[in-house]
Amino acid sequence: MRQYFLSVWNLLDPIYYQCTRLTYLHDSDTAKNIFRVRLTRYKGRNITLSDGTYIQKNDLLLKIHLHNVRLLSELNQVKSVIRKAKLIYQEVQKSLPGVEEYIRNHKHSNEIKGIIGITTLSKGSERLGFEIFTISHPVYRWLKWATCLPITILSTHDFSVKKIIKQSTPCYLFMSKDKLSRIYKK
């Protein structure tokens, strides 16, 4: 059943890609980069990051999206939760230098304050340089939870509703452009 859903998702992914204005990163490892990105104007509450970067409404950020169908296909054969987490961590770590290069070479580089992502996979993200913030608006948090739920269900072999609900609380991940460059500049 899981393989069937992944096959359907694989077919629908190009349509999703077009509708969301996502862009593949054009670095030397494009085929290996787990992220697809797009510029966005921030609409949440004001945030101050640990390096002093202040992010407020309408600031320009690069929104990062995991290429979920590709990631799920790779994780499909892995049974161990620890091994899955390690694989995701490694994929993100390998891909962040491409994100840094993309921002550095972007025509709006001077305006971009950092990167933002929304995820239910926040464990270990601080070691990668991200800062975690809760989504304060309850309706938006619920909407994000609902959109992440299929990914969560497809990525687990231990289907426990209680466990899935507990593990799938979405949150923001932020990293300033300066911190991204400091850690991941090639």
Rank of each mutant, 00 (worst) to 15 (best):
W9L: 15
N10Y: 08
D13Q: 14
I15Q: 08
Y16V: 11
Y17G: 03
Y24S: 05
H26R: 05
S28M: 03
N33T: 02
F35L: 03
R38F: 05
T40M: 11
N46C: 06
N46I: 02
L49C: 12
D51S: 02
I55W: 05
Q56E: 15
K57H: 10
D59Y: 05
D59P: 13
D59C: 13
H65C: 12
H67I: 06
N68P: 06
N68V: 08
L72N: 10
E74C: 12
Q77L: 13
V78Y: 07
K79W: 06
K79V: 14
R83P: 02
K84V: 09
A85R: 15
Y89R: 01
V92T: 08
V92Q: 03
Q93L: 03
S95G: 01
P97H: 00
V99C: 01
E101H: 02
E101T: 03
E101D: 09
S109R: 00
E111N: 11
I112H: 05
I115F: 09
I116Q: 14
G117C: 12
S122H: 14
G124W: 08
S125E: 04
E126P: 04
T134H: 10
T134Y: 07
S136I: 05
H137V: 00
H137F: 07
R141F: 11
L143D: 09
W145Y: 14
A146I: 13
T147C: 10
C148G: 09
P150F: 06
I151E: 13
S155P: 08
S160A: 03
K162I: 15
K162L: 11
K163Y: 10
I165G: 07
Q167T: 13
C171M: 07
L173A: 14
L173R: 08
K177A: 01
D178H: 07
D178W: 02
R182C: 03
K185T: 00
